[in-house]
Nucleic acid binder design. Sequence first.
DNA 1: CGATTCTTTGAAAACAGTCAATCTGTGTGG
DNA 2: CCACACAGATTGACTGTTTTCAAAGAATCG
Lengths: 197, 197
Amino acid sequence: MFDSLAAYLVEKGGLTNDELKLIGDLTVPKRLRKRQYLLQEGNVSNYISFIVKGCLRLYLVSKDGQEHIMRFGVENWWMSDYESFHSGLPSKYNIDALEDSELLMIDKKNYDLLMETVPDFKRMVDKLAARNYEAHQSRILSNISETAEEKYENFIKTYPAIFDRVPLHMVASFLGLSRETLSRVRQQNARKHGNNS
Amino acid sequence: MFDSLAAYLVEKGGLTNDELKLIGDLTVPKRLRKRQYLLQEGNVSNYISFIVKGCLRLYLVSKDGQEHIMRFGVENWWMSDYESFHSGLPSKYNIDALEDSELLMIDKKNYDLLMETVPDFKRMVDKLAARNYEAHQSRILSNISETAEEKYENFIKTYPAIFDRVPLHMVASFLGLSRETLSRVRQQNARKHGNNS
DNA sequence: CGATTCTTTGAAAACAGTCAATCTGTGTGG
DNA sequence: CCACACAGATTGACTGTTTTCAAAGAATCG
Protein backbone atom coordinates (compact mmCIF):
# COMPACT_ATOMS: atom_id res chain seq x y z
CA MET A 1 0.00 0.00 0.00
CA PHE A 2 2.90 2.34 0.72
CA ASP A 3 4.31 1.64 -2.77
CA SER A 4 1.84 4.07 -4.20
CA LEU A 5 2.96 6.90 -1.94
CA ALA A 6 6.62 5.96 -2.42
CA ALA A 7 6.28 6.19 -6.19
CA TYR A 8 4.59 9.52 -5.79
CA LEU A 9 7.32 10.88 -3.52
CA VAL A 10 10.02 9.80 -5.92
CA GLU A 11 8.28 11.31 -8.90
CA LYS A 12 7.20 14.58 -7.32
CA GLY A 13 10.00 15.15 -4.87
CA GLY A 14 12.89 12.92 -5.89
CA LEU A 15 13.13 11.44 -2.41
CA THR A 16 15.82 8.91 -1.58
CA ASN A 17 15.26 5.40 -0.27
CA ASP A 18 16.23 6.41 3.24
CA GLU A 19 13.75 9.24 3.19
CA LEU A 20 11.04 6.96 1.86
CA LYS A 21 11.69 4.53 4.66
CA LEU A 22 11.40 7.27 7.23
CA ILE A 23 8.14 8.52 5.80
CA GLY A 24 6.83 5.00 5.54
CA ASP A 25 7.36 4.61 9.28
CA LEU A 26 5.41 7.75 9.99
CA THR A 27 2.28 6.97 7.98
CA VAL A 28 -0.79 5.18 9.25
CA PRO A 29 -3.04 3.33 6.82
CA LYS A 30 -6.78 3.83 6.95
CA ARG A 31 -9.70 2.38 5.07
CA LEU A 32 -12.88 4.30 4.54
CA ARG A 33 -16.16 2.84 3.38
CA LYS A 34 -18.29 4.82 1.00
CA ARG A 35 -20.11 7.61 2.87
CA GLN A 36 -17.83 7.32 5.86
CA TYR A 37 -16.45 10.53 7.33
CA LEU A 38 -12.75 11.30 7.43
CA LEU A 39 -13.45 14.58 9.22
CA GLN A 40 -16.56 16.15 10.67
CA GLU A 41 -17.32 19.78 11.23
CA GLY A 42 -16.19 20.94 14.65
CA ASN A 43 -13.29 18.52 14.92
CA VAL A 44 -9.67 19.38 14.37
CA SER A 45 -8.04 18.06 11.23
CA ASN A 46 -5.05 16.38 12.85
CA TYR A 47 -3.92 14.47 9.79
CA ILE A 48 -3.02 14.97 6.23
CA SER A 49 -4.01 11.98 4.13
CA PHE A 50 -2.58 10.64 0.92
CA ILE A 51 -5.22 8.94 -1.20
CA VAL A 52 -3.95 5.56 -2.31
CA LYS A 53 -7.28 4.52 -3.75
CA GLY A 54 -10.75 5.97 -3.87
CA CYS A 55 -12.43 9.32 -4.03
CA LEU A 56 -13.27 11.88 -1.33
CA ARG A 57 -14.87 15.28 -1.06
CA LEU A 58 -14.42 18.24 1.28
CA TYR A 59 -17.54 20.30 1.75
CA LEU A 60 -19.26 22.82 3.94
CA VAL A 61 -22.86 22.72 5.10
CA SER A 62 -24.46 26.15 5.14
CA LYS A 63 -27.07 27.32 7.62
CA ASP A 64 -29.89 26.37 5.30
CA GLY A 65 -28.56 22.84 5.07
CA GLN A 66 -27.06 23.07 1.62
CA GLU A 67 -23.80 21.29 0.91
CA HIS A 68 -21.10 23.25 -0.87
CA ILE A 69 -18.26 21.15 -2.18
CA MET A 70 -14.90 22.87 -1.96
CA ARG A 71 -12.67 20.10 -3.28
CA PHE A 72 -12.54 16.58 -4.53
CA GLY A 73 -9.67 14.18 -4.12
CA VAL A 74 -8.71 10.99 -5.94
CA GLU A 75 -5.66 8.74 -6.16
CA ASN A 76 -2.36 10.56 -5.58
CA TRP A 77 -3.98 13.63 -4.11
CA TRP A 78 -3.63 14.82 -0.57
CA MET A 79 -6.70 15.46 1.50
CA SER A 80 -7.09 17.49 4.66
CA ASP A 81 -8.64 20.67 5.87
CA TYR A 82 -5.38 22.58 5.68
CA GLU A 83 -6.78 25.53 7.57
CA SER A 84 -7.59 23.42 10.59
CA PHE A 85 -4.50 21.26 10.11
CA HIS A 86 -2.21 24.27 10.30
CA SER A 87 -4.08 26.29 12.89
CA GLY A 88 -5.19 23.49 15.17
CA LEU A 89 -8.65 25.05 15.28
CA PRO A 90 -11.91 23.15 14.73
CA SER A 91 -12.83 22.68 11.11
CA LYS A 92 -15.83 24.22 9.37
CA TYR A 93 -15.77 21.44 6.83
CA ASN A 94 -16.69 17.81 6.44
CA ILE A 95 -14.70 15.27 4.51
CA ASP A 96 -16.24 11.99 3.47
CA ALA A 97 -15.64 9.17 1.03
CA LEU A 98 -17.53 8.97 -2.25
CA GLU A 99 -16.15 5.49 -2.82
CA ASP A 100 -14.51 2.87 -0.63
CA SER A 101 -11.06 4.35 -0.15
CA GLU A 102 -7.60 3.63 1.16
CA LEU A 103 -5.53 6.37 2.75
CA LEU A 104 -2.13 6.86 4.26
CA MET A 105 -2.29 9.37 7.07
CA ILE A 106 0.47 11.51 8.55
CA ASP A 107 -0.28 13.34 11.75
CA LYS A 108 0.63 16.95 12.41
CA LYS A 109 3.61 16.21 14.61
CA ASN A 110 5.20 13.90 12.08
CA TYR A 111 4.38 16.23 9.25
CA ASP A 112 6.15 19.07 11.02
CA LEU A 113 9.06 16.76 11.69
CA LEU A 114 9.32 15.85 8.02
CA MET A 115 9.12 19.49 6.99
CA GLU A 116 12.02 20.30 9.29
CA THR A 117 14.27 17.35 8.70
CA VAL A 118 13.66 16.32 5.09
CA PRO A 119 14.40 19.21 2.74
CA ASP A 120 13.23 17.27 -0.30
CA PHE A 121 9.89 16.74 1.35
CA LYS A 122 9.61 20.40 2.19
CA ARG A 123 10.54 21.37 -1.34
CA MET A 124 7.87 19.10 -2.69
CA VAL A 125 5.23 20.49 -0.37
CA ASP A 126 6.16 24.01 -1.34
CA LYS A 127 5.84 23.10 -4.99
CA LEU A 128 2.43 21.58 -4.38
CA ALA A 129 1.36 24.69 -2.51
CA ALA A 130 2.33 26.84 -5.47
CA ARG A 131 0.29 24.60 -7.77
CA ASN A 132 -2.57 24.87 -5.37
CA TYR A 133 -2.34 28.61 -5.41
CA GLU A 134 -2.58 28.67 -9.17
CA ALA A 135 -5.52 26.30 -9.10
CA HIS A 136 -7.33 28.61 -6.69
CA GLN A 137 -6.65 31.60 -8.87
CA SER A 138 -8.03 29.95 -11.93
CA ARG A 139 -11.05 28.65 -10.08
CA ILE A 140 -11.83 32.15 -8.85
CA LEU A 141 -11.37 33.51 -12.34
CA SER A 142 -13.75 30.89 -13.64
CA ASN A 143 -16.25 31.76 -10.94
CA ILE A 144 -16.31 35.45 -11.69
CA SER A 145 -15.97 35.39 -15.46
CA GLU A 146 -17.57 32.33 -16.97
CA THR A 147 -21.10 31.26 -17.86
CA ALA A 148 -22.55 28.01 -16.58
CA GLU A 149 -21.63 26.28 -19.81
CA GLU A 150 -18.05 27.51 -19.75
CA LYS A 151 -17.70 26.47 -16.13
CA TYR A 152 -18.78 22.98 -17.03
CA GLU A 153 -16.43 22.70 -20.00
CA ASN A 154 -13.62 24.13 -17.94
CA PHE A 155 -14.25 21.61 -15.19
CA ILE A 156 -14.10 18.69 -17.59
CA LYS A 157 -10.88 19.97 -19.06
CA THR A 158 -9.32 20.68 -15.68
CA TYR A 159 -10.46 17.57 -13.85
CA PRO A 160 -11.05 14.85 -16.45
CA ALA A 161 -10.32 12.20 -13.83
CA ILE A 162 -13.04 13.49 -11.57
CA PHE A 163 -15.96 14.51 -13.69
CA ASP A 164 -16.83 11.01 -14.85
CA ARG A 165 -16.42 9.61 -11.39
CA VAL A 166 -18.56 11.73 -9.11
CA PRO A 167 -22.32 12.32 -9.29
CA LEU A 168 -23.34 15.20 -11.48
CA HIS A 169 -25.09 17.03 -8.68
CA MET A 170 -21.81 17.17 -6.82
CA VAL A 171 -20.08 18.72 -9.80
CA ALA A 172 -22.92 21.22 -9.81
CA SER A 173 -22.30 21.97 -6.14
CA PHE A 174 -18.59 22.41 -6.77
CA LEU A 175 -19.35 24.85 -9.58
CA GLY A 176 -22.04 26.75 -7.72
CA LEU A 177 -24.87 25.73 -10.04
CA SER A 178 -28.11 23.88 -9.45
CA ARG A 179 -28.13 20.29 -10.61
CA GLU A 180 -30.98 21.03 -13.00
CA THR A 181 -29.04 23.80 -14.65
CA LEU A 182 -25.98 21.62 -15.01
CA SER A 183 -28.08 18.84 -16.43
CA ARG A 184 -29.46 21.16 -19.09
CA VAL A 185 -26.14 22.77 -19.86
CA ARG A 186 -24.61 19.38 -20.35
CA GLN A 187 -27.36 18.23 -22.66
CA GLN A 188 -27.00 21.29 -24.88
CA ASN A 189 -23.28 20.75 -24.84
CA ALA A 190 -23.55 17.15 -25.96
CA ARG A 191 -25.82 18.17 -28.82
CA LYS A 192 -23.48 20.96 -29.85
CA HIS A 193 -20.45 18.72 -29.90
CA GLY A 194 -22.10 16.34 -32.31
CA ASN A 195 -22.64 13.51 -29.88
CA ASN A 196 -25.28 11.13 -31.16
CA SER A 197 -28.43 12.90 -30.07
CA MET B 1 9.23 55.89 3.73
CA PHE B 2 10.76 52.69 5.00
CA ASP B 3 9.29 53.39 8.45
CA SER B 4 5.98 52.08 7.30
CA LEU B 5 7.43 48.75 6.21
CA ALA B 6 9.60 48.56 9.32
CA ALA B 7 6.59 48.99 11.56
CA TYR B 8 4.80 46.32 9.60
CA LEU B 9 7.69 43.87 9.88
CA VAL B 10 7.93 44.39 13.61
CA GLU B 11 4.24 43.94 14.14
CA LYS B 12 3.68 40.98 11.84
CA GLY B 13 7.01 39.23 12.14
CA GLY B 14 8.72 40.54 15.25
CA LEU B 15 11.86 41.38 13.28
CA THR B 16 14.91 42.80 15.06
CA ASN B 17 16.62 46.08 14.27
CA ASP B 18 19.46 44.34 12.47
CA GLU B 19 17.02 42.46 10.29
CA LEU B 20 15.11 45.64 9.54
CA LYS B 21 18.30 47.32 8.47
CA LEU B 22 19.16 44.46 6.15
CA ILE B 23 15.73 44.50 4.56
CA GLY B 24 15.85 48.26 4.25
CA ASP B 25 19.02 47.92 2.21
CA LEU B 26 17.36 45.46 -0.14
CA THR B 27 14.24 47.45 -0.96
CA VAL B 28 13.83 49.89 -3.80
CA PRO B 29 11.28 52.69 -3.55
CA LYS B 30 8.92 53.36 -6.42
CA ARG B 31 6.23 55.90 -7.09
CA LEU B 32 3.29 55.16 -9.30
CA ARG B 33 0.90 57.73 -10.70
CA LYS B 34 -2.75 56.87 -10.93
CA ARG B 35 -3.36 54.54 -13.92
CA GLN B 36 0.29 53.67 -14.20
CA TYR B 37 1.20 50.02 -14.67
CA LEU B 38 3.27 48.14 -12.15
CA LEU B 39 3.13 45.03 -14.31
CA GLN B 40 1.79 44.32 -17.76
CA GLU B 41 0.59 41.04 -19.20
CA GLY B 42 3.42 39.13 -20.84
CA ASN B 43 6.13 40.45 -18.56
CA VAL B 44 7.68 38.60 -15.67
CA SER B 45 6.79 39.77 -12.19
CA ASN B 46 10.33 40.21 -10.88
CA TYR B 47 9.40 42.09 -7.75
CA ILE B 48 7.19 41.84 -4.76
CA SER B 49 6.00 45.26 -3.66
CA PHE B 50 4.96 46.53 -0.27
CA ILE B 51 2.35 49.25 -0.53
CA VAL B 52 3.36 52.20 1.62
CA LYS B 53 0.61 54.39 0.29
CA GLY B 54 -2.06 54.14 -2.35
CA CYS B 55 -4.24 51.53 -3.94
CA LEU B 56 -3.60 49.01 -6.72
CA ARG B 57 -5.43 46.29 -8.54
CA LEU B 58 -4.39 43.04 -10.19
CA TYR B 59 -6.61 42.00 -13.07
CA LEU B 60 -6.86 39.86 -16.14
CA VAL B 61 -8.18 40.92 -19.52
CA SER B 62 -10.18 38.18 -21.20
CA LYS B 63 -10.36 37.54 -24.93
CA ASP B 64 -13.46 39.66 -25.29
CA GLY B 65 -11.72 42.59 -23.66
CA GLN B 66 -13.39 42.41 -20.29
CA GLU B 67 -11.34 43.15 -17.20
CA HIS B 68 -11.61 40.72 -14.32
CA ILE B 69 -10.17 41.99 -11.08
CA MET B 70 -8.50 39.27 -9.03
CA ARG B 71 -7.23 41.37 -6.13
CA PHE B 72 -6.97 44.84 -4.69
CA GLY B 73 -4.16 46.13 -2.54
CA VAL B 74 -3.89 49.09 -0.19
CA GLU B 75 -1.47 50.29 2.50
CA ASN B 76 0.39 47.48 4.26
CA TRP B 77 -0.50 44.88 1.68
CA TRP B 78 1.92 43.14 -0.63
CA MET B 79 1.35 43.19 -4.35
CA SER B 80 2.78 40.97 -7.03
CA ASP B 81 1.70 38.28 -9.41
CA TYR B 82 2.96 35.51 -7.17
CA GLU B 83 2.55 32.90 -9.88
CA SER B 84 4.92 34.71 -12.19
CA PHE B 85 7.13 35.84 -9.33
CA HIS B 86 7.73 32.28 -8.20
CA SER B 87 7.83 30.58 -11.58
CA GLY B 88 9.71 33.23 -13.52
CA LEU B 89 7.18 32.82 -16.34
CA PRO B 90 5.38 35.70 -18.07
CA SER B 91 2.34 36.97 -16.26
CA LYS B 92 -1.24 36.69 -17.49
CA TYR B 93 -2.17 39.66 -15.37
CA ASN B 94 -1.89 43.40 -15.24
CA ILE B 95 -1.27 45.44 -12.15
CA ASP B 96 -1.95 49.15 -12.10
CA ALA B 97 -2.48 51.95 -9.65
CA LEU B 98 -5.95 53.21 -8.80
CA GLU B 99 -4.43 56.12 -6.91
CA ASP B 100 -1.02 57.76 -6.82
CA SER B 101 0.98 55.23 -4.83
CA GLU B 102 4.27 54.63 -3.11
CA LEU B 103 5.83 51.19 -3.07
CA LEU B 104 8.87 49.46 -1.67
CA MET B 105 10.00 46.75 -4.02
CA ILE B 106 12.09 43.66 -3.32
CA ASP B 107 13.40 41.71 -6.26
CA LYS B 108 13.29 37.94 -6.53
CA LYS B 109 16.94 37.41 -5.74
CA ASN B 110 16.81 39.45 -2.56
CA TYR B 111 13.50 37.92 -1.58
CA ASP B 112 14.98 34.44 -1.86
CA LEU B 113 17.97 35.62 0.13
CA LEU B 114 15.73 36.93 2.89
CA MET B 115 13.72 33.73 2.93
CA GLU B 116 16.91 31.72 3.39
CA THR B 117 18.77 33.88 5.84
CA VAL B 118 16.11 35.56 7.96
CA PRO B 119 13.95 32.93 9.66
CA ASP B 120 11.64 35.57 11.12
CA PHE B 121 10.96 36.89 7.66
CA LYS B 122 10.24 33.41 6.38
CA ARG B 123 7.94 32.70 9.31
CA MET B 124 6.05 35.86 8.59
CA VAL B 125 5.68 35.05 4.90
CA ASP B 126 4.44 31.57 5.74
CA LYS B 127 1.88 33.06 8.08
CA LEU B 128 0.71 35.45 5.41
CA ALA B 129 0.46 32.60 2.95
CA ALA B 130 -1.79 30.70 5.33
CA ARG B 131 -3.99 33.77 5.70
CA ASN B 132 -4.11 34.08 1.96
CA TYR B 133 -5.16 30.49 1.62
CA GLU B 134 -8.06 31.04 3.97
CA ALA B 135 -9.07 34.17 2.11
CA HIS B 136 -9.14 32.24 -1.14
CA GLN B 137 -11.24 29.52 0.39
CA SER B 138 -13.80 31.92 1.67
CA ARG B 139 -13.88 33.84 -1.58
CA ILE B 140 -14.56 30.62 -3.47
CA LEU B 141 -17.24 29.69 -0.98
CA SER B 142 -18.82 33.08 -1.46
CA ASN B 143 -18.67 32.67 -5.22
CA ILE B 144 -20.40 29.33 -5.29
CA SER B 145 -22.91 29.80 -2.50
CA GLU B 146 -24.02 33.41 -2.21
CA THR B 147 -26.48 35.64 -4.00
CA ALA B 148 -25.41 38.96 -5.49
CA GLU B 149 -26.64 40.78 -2.43
CA GLU B 150 -24.83 38.49 -0.02
CA LYS B 151 -21.65 38.83 -2.04
CA TYR B 152 -21.86 42.57 -1.75
CA GLU B 153 -22.51 42.53 2.00
CA ASN B 154 -19.74 40.01 2.47
CA PHE B 155 -17.33 42.18 0.51
CA ILE B 156 -18.07 45.22 2.63
CA LYS B 157 -17.57 43.22 5.78
CA THR B 158 -14.39 41.57 4.56
CA TYR B 159 -12.78 44.60 2.94
CA PRO B 160 -14.16 47.71 4.63
CA ALA B 161 -10.98 49.60 3.77
CA ILE B 162 -11.41 48.92 0.08
CA PHE B 163 -15.05 49.19 -0.78
CA ASP B 164 -15.33 52.90 -0.14
CA ARG B 165 -12.12 53.59 -1.96
CA VAL B 166 -12.42 51.93 -5.35
CA PRO B 167 -15.03 52.56 -8.04
CA LEU B 168 -18.15 50.49 -7.73
CA HIS B 169 -17.75 48.92 -11.13
CA MET B 170 -14.45 47.49 -9.99
CA VAL B 171 -16.05 45.94 -6.95
CA ALA B 172 -18.58 44.46 -9.38
CA SER B 173 -15.77 43.05 -11.49
CA PHE B 174 -14.10 41.57 -8.41
CA LEU B 175 -17.36 39.92 -7.41
CA GLY B 176 -18.25 38.69 -10.88
CA LEU B 177 -21.34 40.85 -11.24
CA SER B 178 -22.29 43.51 -13.76
CA ARG B 179 -22.00 47.06 -12.52
CA GLU B 180 -25.71 47.59 -13.13
CA THR B 181 -26.60 44.65 -10.94
CA LEU B 182 -24.31 45.81 -8.19
CA SER B 183 -25.74 49.29 -8.40
CA ARG B 184 -29.26 47.94 -7.96
CA VAL B 185 -28.31 45.52 -5.23
CA ARG B 186 -26.67 48.29 -3.32
CA GLN B 187 -29.65 50.57 -3.62
CA GLN B 188 -32.04 47.91 -2.30
CA ASN B 189 -29.57 47.23 0.44
CA ALA B 190 -29.40 50.86 1.49
CA ARG B 191 -33.19 51.03 1.59
CA LYS B 192 -33.42 47.84 3.62
CA HIS B 193 -30.87 48.97 6.17
CA GLY B 194 -32.86 52.08 6.90
CA ASN B 195 -30.52 54.57 5.29
CA ASN B 196 -32.26 57.82 4.63
CA SER B 197 -33.82 57.04 1.29
C1' DC C 1 -16.08 74.85 -18.27
C1' DG C 2 -15.64 70.58 -21.09
C1' DA C 3 -14.18 65.94 -21.08
C1' DT C 4 -13.92 61.85 -18.95
C1' DT C 5 -15.15 58.55 -15.70
C1' DC C 6 -18.47 56.64 -12.85
C1' DT C 7 -23.19 55.58 -11.37
C1' DT C 8 -27.93 55.03 -11.95
C1' DT C 9 -32.25 53.89 -14.29
C1' DG C 10 -35.54 51.62 -17.45
C1' DA C 11 -37.06 48.05 -20.49
C1' DA C 12 -36.29 43.81 -22.73
C1' DA C 13 -34.00 39.52 -23.17
C1' DA C 14 -31.21 35.85 -21.53
C1' DC C 15 -30.11 33.04 -17.91
C1' DA C 16 -30.41 30.28 -13.83
C1' DG C 17 -33.12 28.61 -9.97
C1' DT C 18 -37.21 26.27 -8.02
C1' DC C 19 -40.78 22.97 -7.73
C1' DA C 20 -42.78 18.85 -9.10
C1' DA C 21 -42.89 14.82 -11.67
C1' DT C 22 -40.79 11.16 -14.12
C1' DC C 23 -37.17 8.11 -15.52
C1' DT C 24 -33.01 5.41 -14.81
C1' DG C 25 -29.95 2.38 -12.85
C1' DT C 26 -28.20 0.04 -8.66
C1' DG C 27 -28.23 -2.62 -4.99
C1' DT C 28 -30.47 -4.88 -0.94
C1' DG C 29 -33.45 -7.78 1.55
C1' DG C 30 -37.08 -11.00 1.35
C1' DC D 1 -34.66 -13.93 -8.50
C1' DC D 2 -37.87 -10.50 -7.86
C1' DA D 3 -39.66 -6.42 -5.73
C1' DC D 4 -38.72 -2.46 -3.69
C1' DA D 5 -36.25 1.34 -2.08
C1' DC D 6 -32.94 4.66 -3.03
C1' DA D 7 -29.79 7.67 -5.21
C1' DG D 8 -29.14 10.09 -9.27
C1' DA D 9 -30.48 12.36 -13.67
C1' DT D 10 -33.66 14.49 -16.55
C1' DT D 11 -37.61 17.22 -18.07
C1' DG D 12 -41.33 20.79 -18.13
C1' DA D 13 -43.46 24.81 -16.52
C1' DC D 14 -42.82 28.63 -13.93
C1' DT D 15 -40.51 32.20 -11.25
C1' DG D 16 -37.01 35.10 -10.16
C1' DT D 17 -32.54 37.02 -10.94
C1' DT D 18 -29.01 38.91 -13.71
C1' DT D 19 -27.36 40.69 -17.96
C1' DT D 20 -27.60 43.60 -21.78
C1' DC D 21 -28.43 47.71 -24.20
C1' DA D 22 -29.35 52.41 -24.25
C1' DA D 23 -29.71 56.67 -22.14
C1' DA D 24 -29.20 60.00 -18.80
C1' DG D 25 -27.47 61.89 -14.42
C1' DA D 26 -23.46 62.75 -11.03
C1' DA D 27 -19.03 63.47 -9.91
C1' DT D 28 -14.25 64.41 -10.78
C1' DC D 29 -10.28 66.32 -13.05
C1' DG D 30 -7.54 69.05 -15.90
